[in-house]
Design a protein around this nucleic acid. Structure first.
Length: 203
DNA sequence: ACCGCGATAGCCT
DNA sequence: GGCTATCGCGGTA
């Protein structure tokens, strides 16, 4: 079942937890990729020096963060990579949830080819995990770039999110990654992941 | 497995 | 001009 628009109106801290276990659907190159969300981070512009929207910074780049929840925010980073956020909350809030890791559910050979130009069964165990165990790695694997920016994730197009199978897991709550400049926000426990999942980017 | 480093371009001051 | 919500490599273990 696709997640409706209402689901995304929750705040980023709630949504970061709620998105764990949900399933991303991505249709590209004639295949339908499915993967479970296993690691997320919340960013809340109003109080968070790590957020692109901190201090009301509303520019062409950060505009998606200020829209109503349920769309994608895709930004370019370090001259080479993309990262994908799910926008949460109400209009003008400036919040979102960074998707940091996925567990692939199908099309393993397609993903292996895309990431390493190899067949899946030729990959080392380390490379099998590395297909989607980071925010930019998953963007490469799932062909997510600027053209996915602003896409509505509550509509059944080529990029959306489903409820997925009901399963139970424990959520680990810890500090976020790669925000050494963010002063007191460095220590906010706003990273969440499924305990024991092998695709998380870092323990 | 872990550590250090360089790549690379758009964004913001 | 300085910085960046990262990755992959090569070296060490």
């Amino acid at each position: 079942m696709i997640l409706n628009k209402e689901f995304y109106k929750q705040g980023a801290l709630i949504l970061a937890r709620e998105l764990l276990g949900k399933v991303i659907i991505r249709k590209v190159d004639g295949v339908t990729l499915r993967a479970k969300i296993v690691e997320t981070e919340a960013y809340i512009g109003e109080i968070d020096k790590a957020s692109h929207a901190y201090n009301g910074r509303r520019t062409e780049r950060t505009e998606p963060l200020f829209r109503e929840g349920g769309i994608a925010y895709v930004y370019f980073i370090y001259g080479k990579y993309y990262c994908f956020n799910v926008i949460s909350g109400l209009e003008d809030k400036g919040e979102g949830v960074l998707i940091r890791a996925l567990e692939p559910l199908n099309e393993f050979d397609y993903l292996a080819k895309k990431r390493f130009n190899q067949n899946y069964d030729e990959l080392s165990e380390t490379k099998k995990k590395a297909i989607t165990n980071g925010p930019s790695k998953l963007c490469i694997a799932f062909s997510i770039d600027k053209s996915e920016n602003y896409k509505r994730l509550y509509e059944e197009g080529d990029f959306y999110i489903e409820e997925g199978e009901k399963d139970t897991f424990k959520i680990v709550e810890t500090k976020r990654i790669g925000i050494d400049y963010a002063e007191e926000a460095i220590d906010f426990p706003w990273r969440f992941y499924i305990e024991g999942n092998k695709y998380i980017s870092k323990k």
